[in-house]
Computed example of a mutant assay.
Amino acid sequence: MSIEDDIAFLERVPTLALIGREALRVIAISVERYAVPRGQALFREGDAADCAYVVVHGTFSVTRGNDEATRRPGQATRVGSTALLGEMALLTDTKRPATATALEDAEVLRLPRMVFLRTLESYPEAAHRLTRELTAQINATLAELEKVRRRLEAIDGEPRP
């Protein structure tokens, strides 16, 4: 694929589309492509995380719970092309909260945190758009959690913090 093809592909990833074409050009130049054979873990829960991955093709199962015995059917999330895996690692030093395993032969783009952060420094308007969107998502999550808290209070009659 050419750089232009990579940019066009990255624009299809909702979170990355927020930063704009010029910022994506810088990122597209720096991404690394990896083949991930069926059954191989892309990363494991608890691993240190210094990058995110975009699924180019293939499907991944994303599961929580470090050992097979603790996983239950239905706990896995399936993701495919244009999914952004490990996006928090683009912004902060963190550990993987889940394991991503290829369900078929797959290909991913690796986006290193340092490249992403330097790109945001160079394109402050992109950083602002991303911040706005992440803030909106966090606020929506907090609103949903508040609804759950109120429902739990209604069920057992006890105030919750």
Rank of each mutant, 00 (worst) to 15 (best):
P37Q: 04
P37R: 06
R38P: 06
R38D: 11
G39A: 04
Q40A: 15
E45K: 12
D47E: 12
C51F: 07
C51G: 03
A52G: 13
V54I: 10
V55T: 09
V55K: 01
V55L: 05
V56W: 03
V56D: 12
H57P: 05
G58F: 02
G58A: 04
F60P: 00
T63H: 01
R64M: 11
R64V: 13
G65R: 13
N66F: 02
N66T: 14
N66E: 14
D67I: 01
D67N: 13
R71H: 09
R71M: 06
R72M: 03
G74K: 10
Q75T: 12
A76G: 09
T77R: 15
T77L: 08
V79F: 02
T82A: 04
A83R: 14
L84E: 12
L85M: 08
G86L: 02
L90Y: 02
L91Q: 00
T94G: 03
A98I: 06
A102M: 05
L103N: 10
D105G: 00
D105M: 01
V108P: 12
L109K: 08
R110I: 08
F116A: 00
L117V: 15
E121K: 03
Y123A: 11
P124F: 01
P124C: 05
E125C: 00
A126G: 04
H128Q: 14
R129W: 11
R129T: 14
R129E: 15
L130W: 14
L130S: 08
E133G: 07
L134G: 06
L134V: 06
A136Y: 01
A136W: 00
